[in-house]
Design a protein around this nucleic acid. Structure first.
Lengths: 152, 152
DNA sequence: CGGTATCCACATGGATACTG
DNA sequence: CAGTATCCATGTGGATACCG
């Protein structure tokens, strides 16, 4: 993979991403949010997480702009946590991780499949693609300096 | 997203994936492995991780079949940790996470870009695609029972 | 070189009780 | 309902020393 070694030096956004999502519960809370859960007690009972940890994680996710905290208009005690665009953008990463887990037979076998609602066929495995959509193999990847790329 | 709520009930492979990769250093060690690092001391100085933690994480990654531990033929004290196919399969998840971090301006701006070596153009953002390669929007996803999918 | 062993600080996580 | 407060056990992480 050639120049890939340099990926190490660059603080490549991965450590930054992990700062938020690297904590054990963060992805599970995110998944729950994708599932439509939005209230404290829903997360609490849905995930089996400790109140303190949930409180802490929600605050961190809000702080990082992944969830948005909005008190209800009717009952101001009631608070809804909803995904921001930034949070929604984590779906590919989450699905990639999930697919990996499924592929290697970890966890419980589910009989639910994520499909494209247009043709009711399962989505493709999340993978690496060239700018034009061609799948790329691991061996065909290379690091280049921004100034050396073909067309911007 | 309709039936997505059921994703919660299913132990969908995500928790299983997180059991290994959910620990803070796991992804960083993996990234280092992708960068070509393979020896204990390389990881140690490359990552600035504590010996004990590194030892523990490497053992766990090996135990889960993500890294392979092979003592060198010439010097049996020397051990190489290399990515297994299962480990290599984590690249999309890692890149998706990394791209997310980069997209939202987290971490240090790198001047290195991952490109397809055939045309030297940056790879596409990791995303969700239908079986035939069409990109799918979040709103077009749906959960179906395995028995209800179009063609297997 | 590739680890254990030890010590210590602090974070994580669970349980439970309390509050506005 | 959505937290905060408290207690406690265990895990994480760093530093350092030691070992085959």
């Amino acid at each position: 993979m050639g120049k890939l070694r340099e990926m190490l030096d660059a603080d490549c956004g991965l450590p930054a991403a992990l700062e938020v999502m690297g904590e054990r519960w963060s992805f599970l809370i995110l998944r729950a949010a994708f599932n439509g859960l939005s209230h404290f007690e829903e997360f609490l009972s849905g995930l089996g997480i400790a109140r303190k940890i949930l409180s802490n994680r929600l605050a961190k996710l809000v702080e990082h702009g992944i969830l948005e905290r909005t008190p209800q208009a009717d009952d101001r005690r009631r608070v809804a946590y909803t995904l921001t665009p930034k949070g929604l953008d984590l779906l590919p990463a989450m699905l990639a991780l999930r697919q990996w887990g499924v592929k290697y037979g970890l966890g419980v076998q589910s009989d639910l499949v994520l499909v494209d609602c247009r043709d009711h066929r399962p989505i493709a495995p999340i993978g690496i693609h060239a700018h034009d959509g061609r799948p790329i193999a691991y061996a065909d990847l290379k690091w280049l300096y921004r100034t050396d790329v073909g067309e911007p």
